[in-house]
Simulated assay, not measured.
Amino acid sequence: MPHQSSLLKQQEAKSTAVAHAKVIAPGVPARLGSTPSTTFRGNPAIFGRLVEDHDKHRALLAMIEATSPKDPARKLLFEEFVRDVHGHAAAEEQALWSTIMRNPETTQFARHAVGDHHKIDKLMADAAARDITSPGWLRHFAKLKEEYLDHILEEETEQFVEAEKTLSPPDQRYMRRVFSRRKKAEKAAAEIEKKIALKPT
């Protein structure tokens, strides 16, 4: 049955993404629970590759939350999350959104996604600037987690859906190759910025 085959492919893609997160701290549980339903999970082109990263990030967020303040795994997991998200966002903008932005029908989706990336950058810098071993650190982290999960849900259920309509299958496969190459370079160059976010007046 093709439907069963598709579900199996999706489960395998999610398991692989979680395994990539677990490499950082094998002893920390990755309790994701259910993830939002998307037809892109396991897709061989650009959108499947992006969802693969999203699932890894969901796992990292769950693992960070499962650590205690003094657990050295918390810092390792958080730094991996920040670097991976930086690399992911920069490569996504280069491989996907720069093209989508040129189409008047999809410009708003691309701009919204890129705007979210900047907001998340500020929240990551705020969390990085605070004492990760303090009992209250998870409160600041919770805001970052909420914003990031909202962002990737919106991408998977709205923005990718609209973007896909304007791209041919060969374009999507080409974008995956561009994304993978740029992600590696951008992640390697990523620095962890530390800057407390000013409260809105």
Results as ranks from 00 to 15, higher is better:
71 D>W: 02
73 A>S: 14
75 K>Y: 08
76 L>E: 12
76 L>Q: 14
76 L>K: 14
77 L>M: 11
78 F>Q: 00
81 F>A: 01
83 R>A: 04
84 D>A: 14
85 V>A: 10
89 A>H: 02
89 A>C: 10
90 A>M: 10
91 A>F: 06
92 E>W: 01
96 L>C: 03
96 L>K: 00
97 W>L: 03
97 W>D: 01
98 S>P: 01
100 I>A: 01
100 I>L: 09
102 R>H: 05
102 R>N: 11
103 N>R: 12
103 N>P: 03
105 E>K: 06
106 T>A: 04
107 T>M: 09
107 T>V: 13
109 F>K: 00
111 R>S: 14
111 R>P: 06
112 H>V: 10
112 H>S: 12
113 A>V: 03
114 V>Q: 10
115 G>I: 06
116 D>T: 12
116 D>E: 15
117 H>G: 08
118 H>E: 15
118 H>W: 10
119 K>D: 03
121 D>I: 04
121 D>G: 08
121 D>F: 07
121 D>V: 08
122 K>Q: 06
124 M>Y: 00
124 M>N: 01
124 M>Q: 03
124 M>D: 00
124 M>I: 03
125 A>C: 08
126 D>F: 04
126 D>M: 07
131 D>Y: 06
131 D>Q: 11
132 I>Q: 00
134 S>I: 03
135 P>F: 10
137 W>Y: 07
137 W>F: 08
138 L>T: 14
141 F>R: 00
142 A>H: 12
143 K>E: 11
145 K>V: 11
146 E>P: 02
148 Y>S: 11
148 Y>C: 07
149 L>H: 06
149 L>R: 03
149 L>M: 14
150 D>Y: 04
150 D>K: 03
151 H>K: 10
152 I>F: 08
153 L>D: 14
153 L>R: 14
153 L>T: 15
154 E>A: 12
155 E>W: 09
157 T>L: 10
159 Q>M: 13
160 F>A: 11
162 E>K: 15
164 E>K: 13
164 E>W: 03
164 E>F: 03
164 E>T: 04
165 K>N: 14
166 T>H: 08
167 L>E: 01
168 S>C: 09
168 S>D: 12
168 S>H: 06
170 P>G: 07
170 P>H: 05
171 D>G: 08
171 D>A: 15
174 Y>N: 13
174 Y>A: 15
174 Y>V: 06
174 Y>C: 07
